[in-house]
């Protein structure tokens, strides 16, 4: 038991990222409002960012900037995950942008942002056209 606890203690970043992930998934799953779903998605993505950053961490590491010391002599944070996350954040922002743009159009076309109401309207559209 104490082993598990210690493990959790040293890997607490796992706990946080999984908790965030579940919160995000829950929002997407359970919230009917389209914007809330997008927010859930953002939380989910944030969990991933956090995870990446945490795996690049090194105890007492400094910024990976090469001044005059040799890289072997000082501990520094792994820069690659940070770089990757820059890209991923850009991607996340673009997705959010597209999603919000779509929501605006959906609100105009359907007059609502509730998924259940949209589905009802879709159903009646189909029966109308059939």
């Amino acid at each position: 038991m104490s082993d598990v606890l210690r493990h959790l203690g040293t890997h607490y970043h796992y706990v946080i990222y999984i908790a965030l992930m579940l919160i995000g998934l829950f929002a997407v799953l359970a919230k009917g409002n389209l914007i809330k779903k997008v927010i859930g998605l953002n939380v989910l993505q944030t969990a991933v960012f956090l995870f990446y950053i945490s795996i690049g961490r090194k105890a007492d590491g400094t910024a990976p900037v090469l001044w005059d010391q040799k890289p072997e002599t000082i501990p520094y944070e792994n820069p690659v995950p940070h770089v990757l996350m820059l890209t991923a954040i850009v991607v996340g922002v673009s997705i959010t942008a597209v999603a919000l743009a779509l929501i605006i159009r959906i609100k105009r076309a359907y007059g609502t942002m509730e998924e259940s109401e949209i589905l009802v309207l879709d159903e009646s559209d189909q029966q109308g056209s059939a």
């Binding site: 997407v28 389209l34 997008v38 690659v80 779509l102 929501i103 359907y110 559209d125």
Partner: peptide
């Protein structure tokens, strides 16, 4: 048709979850 907007949105949410999973997979591998 307006259904296209919802279809696109639906794909966006589900697809993004898929992409996030892929990103996590890559992270674990890395």
């Amino acid at each position: 048709r307006r259904q296209a907007l919802y279809a696109g949105y639906s794909y966006l949410i589900v697809g993004s979850i898929g992409a996030t999973f892929i990103l996590l997979g890559i992270g674990h591998l890395y």
